[in-house]
Simulated scan of single mutants.
Amino acid sequence: MPKTCFERLTLHGPTMGTRWSVTMDAAPGLDVQALRQALAAAVQQVDALMSPWQPGSAINQLNKAETGCWITLQAPILEVLAAALEVNRLSDGAFDPAVGALVDAWGFGPVRDAPDAAAIRAAARPASRPTHELLELDPATRRARKHAAMQLDLCGIAKGYAVDRMAAVLQGHGVAHALAALDGELRALGGQAGGPAWAVALESPQAGRRAAQGVIELRDLAVATSGDYRRFFDIAGQRLSHTMDARRAAPVRGEVASVTVLARDCMSADAWATALLVAGPGAGLALAQRLGLEALWLLRRSGQLVQLGLGRFGAAGAA
């Protein structure tokens, strides 16, 4: 049987305020233009449905819907909402998709570009029950309804889902060797055509510069990182991250610089990286151990970066 000759190709494009990209080993006969269009359409759909920055997005329609009223939604956003609510339940609220008002109040959303004390006080009112009990989904009829006023924000999970959609598009076009990426979320389909896994650099959490902290090898696996070093405010020497801790009604702060999670799908990796960042090294480590998650914490201690890893991120997990 003749050996298949693969060609290394890279496709990319803008989305969600950043860029998507795919590196792949393509077999002969692949319609690259059709694939590029399908990939762009997939991430564009996720953005159109789930971006709080898009006035007509489905998430904004749900946010504006009256409490107790059913609203019809497309299957993709229902899938992401269901996953978000499950992580909210399992993480004891560390991951909370109902942080939209807090994100806006602290100046990280589309409403304002700096913290607003009055808006923060208004957004800090505690909910009567956990978010997973206050948002009802009916997948059979593709509907959702809120049982209390809330402003949903899926930015802690939507990019990972977009990467999974890209992976599905690649598989649908017969691509078996690829690495799909969107910002800090990546998913590998198989390994490289020659056999090796895909080598992915783990970013060092240093604001204002890009440097590698280590390398992880991916084969049929996804990875996502959440941290406080990309989008933040520095107020009186205090770093305020764009990631919200709904339980404190404030941005994440503390010694955790970043959390990286491995999972079979990128949506799960994305959500759990956010959840563990919010939970902190103590509760987060216990949670990850209980659920069997593979995670790497980078902690700032005495001016040094300290690694704490589980699973493949243990002693030999990251080089």
Rank of each mutant, 00 (worst) to 15 (best):
L9Y: 01
L310A: 00
T72M: 14
R19Q: 13
L298Q: 11
A319P: 11
E66H: 13
E86A: 15
A82R: 12
D220L: 01
P76K: 08
L182P: 15
V32Y: 02
D153N: 12
Q213E: 14
D104I: 07
A118T: 07
I120N: 00
R239D: 15
A122N: 12
L30Q: 02
A263L: 11
A167T: 12
A199D: 13
A249H: 09
P126G: 08
S302G: 06
R247Q: 12
S258F: 07
S128R: 13
L81E: 06
A188R: 12
R129C: 03
V43K: 11
G284A: 09
H177C: 01
L81C: 15
G109W: 10
S57P: 05
R142K: 13
G280A: 06
R209L: 14
A211C: 14
G292A: 12
R165E: 14
V215C: 09
S57W: 15
D31L: 10
S258I: 04
V256C: 05
A193Y: 02
R264L: 15
R187L: 15
L296S: 11
A144D: 06
A279G: 07
A84M: 07
T4F: 01
A75S: 08
P55A: 01
A34K: 07
A26W: 01
R121Q: 12
P76M: 06
A180S: 03
A275T: 05
L35N: 02
T18C: 00
